[in-house]
Design a protein around this nucleic acid. Structure first.
Lengths: 235, 235
DNA sequence: TGTACATCAGTGAACGCGCGTTCACTGATGTAC
DNA sequence: TGTACATCAGTGAACGCGCGTTCACTGATGTAC
């Protein structure tokens, strides 16, 4: 109990567990989430299918582990981008660009993991609560960047008609969660930029841009430039 | 050949074919695309599973029929919204709002059909060319509304830095496809609004807004108001 | 109009497949005395 | 340090399931003469 030296058994257990996850990830990349199969995973690993049950109580638990892993991986990429630009003193707009690019880059590198977390929900699967924390990492990285800009006084005020009262209410919840000091109008626009970002990435990763846009890079850059402006992030 | 009076056989064929499709649609709504099964469909219809092969050569062809149906249904909803507001002389901005609401309304009413066409691609399924036409109907309805505004001279010019040359190239293809007379800057922004719209709807339909936004209606209204402004659609 | 043949919708059995999960077991690792 | 027992990873057979697709068939509908 609380022992710092793990036993051989414990070490083996951690390793095999990681191998199963890794193989599952590999198969996810080929076949997609709904056809992920415990049997196929263990087969590839050269073990009996029943052995998997020593590590994951059911197929859904394996799926959950993959989802958590994906959220964490994406979240880490976004956080790293946000932190690096904070350290190097980038402008809010540059930070926004860098984080957006990191998110898109991750999605393109891991299309099936992206689909797993931002695509259509897997039928019959209900994501348990423990996915909520990892899921919010990306979002908090983006929100943090806006908060930082606000605190540094570098946020352009939002022009245009005042927010509808109902919208002020909606935004209030978000403010408390992630953007304490940011004015409601800016938060409202940040929500729009947020959905635009993932809409753009989803269209690209899911092939919706085919036949319409050839160079998705260029269109992405334009989109984040426009939306950075909409939010009021200054160069 | 070319006979206008269909035989009893032909009429029965059309009816059964429609029944299979309808039942497949019903099951899609419960279980999602990847677990759509020919056997389950025919079972529910009280016929032998092999009978389905008189109507659809394979499961994938059934899927394709459902996809085409979904695209057409959504496309029609968007076109109807666009036409009705054209007839009643709505402003470009009002037309934009109405079409966006129609698209969102359809998605909320038919979440699984929405997921089928805008969610993660079904693994192993390759959409055949005949889906392209129906798929472009929504997009063309949106593009048409911008074109109309341009022709009527009611499009606000886009402020801000000039488009990057690479972006001008990208936009040129879109211009020829769907927005002949519209200036490149506006088309570029229309692309951003387009991905924002579907990003917002996907987040809502796929449950990504849960725990962040309670009243999706209000946030949606705000989003299309902001993006209508970004594109330059006047009230 | 009546008959002979062709077409084709629908049947039911069968093939071969892969899946998730359970269970009694063996043998290696860990632990208490 | 050595022994006896407990823990637990991994096995292999089995259960019951549902799937897509094929095939030879029956019987009703359609068509040519």
């Amino acid at each position: 109990m609380g022992n710092t030296i793990p036993t051989a058994r414990a070490r083996a257990r951690a390793e095999v567990s990681a191998e199963i996850l890794a193989e599952a990830r590999r198969q996810l990349a080929v076949a997609g989430a709904s056809s992920l199969s415990l049997r196929a995973v263990t087969r590839e690993l050269g073990m009996a299918s029943s052995a998997a049950y020593r590590y994951f109580p059911s197929r859904d638990d394996l799926l959950t582990a993959l989802i958590v892993e994906a959220y964490d991986s994406l979240g880490e990429a976004a956080e790293r981008a946000a932190d690096s630009t904070a350290d190097s003193g980038g402008s809010p707009f540059e930070r926004w660009q860098t984080v957006c690019r990191a998110i898109r880059g991750w999605a393109i590198d891991n299309p099936h993991e992206y689909a797993l977390i931002y695509g259509s929900p897997v039928p019959g699967y209900r994501a348990p609560v423990l996915t909520v924390g990892p899921a919010s990492r990306v979002t908090l990285a983006l929100a943090g960047l806006v908060s930082d800009a606000q605190r540094a006084g570098t946020l352009a005020p939002v022009a245009g008609p005042p927010l509808a009262p109902a919208m002020v209410d909606q935004v209030e919840g978000v403010r408390q969660l992630a953007m304490e000091d940011v004015p409601p109008d800016t938060i409202a626009r940040a929500l729009v930029a947020w959905t635009q970002l993932f809409g753009q990435i989803s269209f690209e990763v899911f092939g919706q841009l085919q036949g319409i846009v050839e160079n998705a890079d260029v269109v992405f850059e334009h989109a984040i430039a426009v939306m950075g402006g909409v939010v009021g992030l200054r160069h």
